[in-house]
Nucleic acid binder design. Structure first.
Lengths: 241, 241
DNA sequence: CGTATTGTTGAGCGTAGTCAAAGTTAGTGG
DNA sequence: CCACTAACTTTGACTACGCTCAACAATACG
């Protein structure tokens, strides 16, 4: 068994909404985890795979995406450390989308059968896992709204707000500054825009002094106005206080 | 206790992917269900509610939607009989979206605490519920792709394919004909388009003899070409064979 | 230091939006 | 059963947001 301290961020996140007993923690830690580094842009899962493991993001960033026929890509979510990237594979036999690294990082893998056994024997863990997939769902719903009914400026502002809020909640923010793992091309793929237009919107957000963003580093200069531009409310994130 | 036969469609759907024991069925049936009719356009749940019950759609159609600031609406999913419309409320305390009836119909309500107890005591039921929410997730992901990266014609064709495929799987199709619960305005709200443009696309799909659609009744005239136009593959529905 | 990736700019275009009005159908009540 | 009304669908003219293509600049990285 690997040193299980790498699970601490997960327990910290889950602990905010539910009290986990020592037995719960023990049960998860004693699973046969394997920890592996990954490179930027490497695929963690490909659409159509039936992976035997579940993967937990420990360091770095990843996204889920789908490719449409003409080769265009739509990113459907972005993941930060302490999040599972494919919990649905515990039950659904075949992956309906790909998971790709946005940066270098590290992930933990655990056989899904073993994870499901622990989830069934320890209801709090099972609930925490289910809960995580429900949050994913809620974020997907908000993304449908984002690409379906907001203009380019709002879409980008909203996505920036979401990432900042989620990173803040995980202690990954530093006084309004955040690692921003998306290139402009990927930001475009997440918002349903083109890279060119994304670039122009970012320039406008910078000119209006809402954000400063260059080379993977984001600073939110005016939270309140950025929120308004993005019509952002964190209700859908269901974050514990 | 109400006559529990109204749960039969749910058991039929779940039974396709998992064998349910008599005990499982008994446990669900003996819950304190209440059955209620609802009118077209009535709200089953409003964003911000914390309902004490979970709702199962028995007859008729419903959708989930969110409203953005300028009053525009985005429908994020459509539900057909035998589906829960708010299973996530079992765990998440506050609803992040509204559920509204598309047609008249009937739903069953059950206290979420009682449902969760049964889910924990009968792992197969718990899994079936979790599975359902995972399918929801997968559909949301596909909708992000649909509104994010497909043109108007593909979006509408894709949505039609999805509804037809799901209804077919539940025995709600009749030789390529289906009840179609969406007005053009709502179809627009589901695809991120305007009603006017939706109207023009529908006319074009009719002219090309892919579908005939008038007044809540849809007939798919050419499945293969409609699939191609919508780039539809049913993988993301994870339907049992 | 050289090369690939990422970001920026400009000009022209097209898909889908907007607005407004008319036509059609369903539902309701007399 | 018909008349009336509200909801839904259709049409036309005009507009605009975001896309395309292409070239160039800046940055990261080996």
């Amino acid at each position: 068994m690997t040193d299980p301290s790498f699970l601490a961020p997960l327990f910290r996140r889950w602990g905010k909404r539910t009290f986990l007993s020592e037995a719960d923690i023990q049960a998860l830690q004693s699973l046969p985890w394997t920890v592996r580094a990954f490179e930027r842009d490497s695929y963690l899962i490909r659409e159509g795979d039936s992976p035997p493991d579940c993967r937990l993001l420990l360091q770095g960033f990843a996204c889920r995406h789908k490719i449409v026929r003409d080769g265009a890509r739509q990113i459907v979510s972005i993941h930060i450390p302490s999040e599972f990237v494919d919990l649905q594979n515990c039950l659904l036999p075949e992956s309906d989308h790909s998971v790709q690294a946005l940066t270098r990082g590290e992930m933990g893998s655990v056989p899904k059968a073993a994870l499901m056994e622990v989830a069934e024997a320890n209801p709090k863990i099972g609930r925490a896992m289910w809960w995580d997939t429900l949050i994913d769902s809620s974020v997907f719903r908000e993304w449908v709204v984002n690409v379906g009914r907001r203009d380019a400026r709002s879409r980008i502002a909203h996505l920036i707000c979401e990432l900042a809020a989620r990173m803040e909640a995980c202690g990954l923010g530093d006084n309004g500054s955040y690692d921003f793992p998306l290139t402009q091309e990927k930001l475009a793929d997440a918002t349903g825009l083109t890279p060119v237009h994304t670039n122009r919107v970012l320039q406008s957000l910078r000119k209006d002094e809402l954000i400063s963003l260059s080379f993977q580093s984001l600073k939110v200069l005016d939270w309140e106005r950025l929120r308004q531009v993005g019509e952002f409310s964190d209700r859908y994130l269901h974050q514990a206080a």
